[in-house]
């Protein structure tokens, strides 16, 4: 089921999906945010020990994402209940999506599923039309930060200016 070509690459149309999301379990997916850049942040698991938690970092960077009108969605195979407790403990206000049943189906469709049953630590940036514009696979124990994401969002903004001009 996992994509044999690895993580989804720029230029491809992002597979559509909806998953239950924090805080209230409503179904969310990237198609609901057409017209805005969408950042999909796949991560192995809630509560996993990384020095400087990646999702906490993205929450603290929320004002910067807002400048780009970018939507951040966190995804792991954890259930909505785990996501809720995790979001509460770290003060995470952006949606965490539960790729829980069928387990890892969305992660697989993006080539971001690992043999150990967790999502990979992978970043995928979608342009406002839903096409992949940048993707990055990080070692599972390394927080990739956000610099690559913001570079991709800058590039998107620059491309749009060229198109408009």
């Amino acid at each position: 089921m996992s994509d044999p070509n690895g993580l989804i690459q720029p230029g491809r149309t992002a597979p559509g999906f909806t998953l239950p999301a924090t805080p209230d379990g409503a179904l969310l997916g990237p198609e609901q945010f057409r017209g805005r850049p969408v950042v999909l942040a796949f991560y192995p698991a809630d509560w996993s020990p990384v020095c400087g938690d990646q999702m906490s970092l993205y929450q603290s960077a929320a004002p910067v994402f807002a400048q780009y009108r970018a939507v951040v969605l966190g995804l792991s195979v954890d259930s909505i209940w785990s996501h809720r407790a995790f979001a509460e403990s770290r003060g995470i206000e952006f949606p965490l999506l539960a790729d829980f049943e069928p387990k890892g189906e969305v992660a697989r469709s993006y080539g971001a599923y690992m043999p150990n049953g967790e999502a990979a630590r992978a970043l995928v940036v979608l342009d406002p039309a839903g096409k992949v514009t940048w993707s990055y696979l990080s070692p599972p124990d390394v927080n990739p930060g956000a610099d690559g994401i913001f570079d991709a969002l800058d590039q998107l903004a620059a491309d749009r200016k060229v198109m408009a001009g």
Partner: peptide
Amino acid sequence: RRDFVGGIRSGVNGTPT
């Protein structure tokens, strides 16, 4: 905020960096 944004653009991924 300016320090924070400069940090996140530089690849700060936790503290301390």
